[in-house]
Amino acid sequence: MKITIKNIVKEFESYGAEERRKQEKIFRAVDDVSFTVEEGELVTLLGPSGCGKTTLLRMIAGFEDPTSGDILFGSVRVNDTPPNLRGATMVFQSYAIFPHLSVRENVAFGLRLQKLPPPEIDARIAKVTALVELSGLDDRRPSQLSGGQQQRVALARALIMEPQLLLFDEPLSNLDAKLREQMRIDIRKLQQRLGITSIYVTHDQTEAMSISDNVIVMNAGRLEQMGPPAELYSRPVNRFVASFIGKANFLPDPESGHTIMVRPEAVKLALSGEQTDGFWGRVTRSTYLGGILEYEVETKDAALLVHEQNSFERPPFAVGDAVSIKLLPSGLVKMD
């Protein structure tokens, strides 16, 4: 199902001491955001905490009402549809597993409400628990489950409804690093196999890059840029997007007066003497990260961050080395 978000605005009356001091009675959490999600796509809302991404997701789920703007599921405006009739199920950050129910009762919760015949419920439970690799835990209580298992229960509970739209609210933020990587691969595989249109909220750029068809970068309630991961990384439209996704160097362009953005891997170094190009600097930091060597190079008017693939063919540059600097022309992005 195609999802259309049109000029969504969400304002809260602010109660925080900070806002009261500034005498701002109204806080704009989401500021005129529009985008579309195509059928079967996974789109990620990415941004720092407080950027409005979770509020936007909760409006799509129906837990918050937008101050203005439209939310369309297909061609139907759902602004006034209560959350229980939207058919968009959600995987919550805290999992929100019902602690008084067993795994099975948690997963079956929505189907029981629809009063489906028990054999059909059983069949669908079997299917979905196999899908999320949760078989054999049916009668466990949530308190007896590990974090990863709880995560799978939350996913199964949302998937069993065969939703038109699947929503994820930072679903992996409570898991440890290894499990997080495994889960995000599993979620992406599952989403592609079932072809469910999905919206995914995260503040982790690696997670966003690895899982999405399209990423939306948000900041202070506004949509900064939307596009496929490769485009966001190679062609960010502004400084915020450039520095939020990956690392970036900003250099003044002496000819046009614009700022030029260049990624650390698009900077090539060589010991002076081997190459003579005019643009040179001195290494002030050299960090051995394993697969990558990271340097800080000071030129006469900027400090550059440089990443170099570890080639094992020569020793890394040392602090104090004089190096000539070359910028790959295809890696230069003009900023506004």
């Binding site: 837990f63 959350p83 229980n84 199920t89 929100a96 019902f98 409400l113 509970r157 949302a158």
Partner: peptide, 10 residues
Amino acid sequence: LEDAAMNVGA
């Protein structure tokens, strides 16, 4: 938890 219940149709 109440959100979650309504989210799956309650």
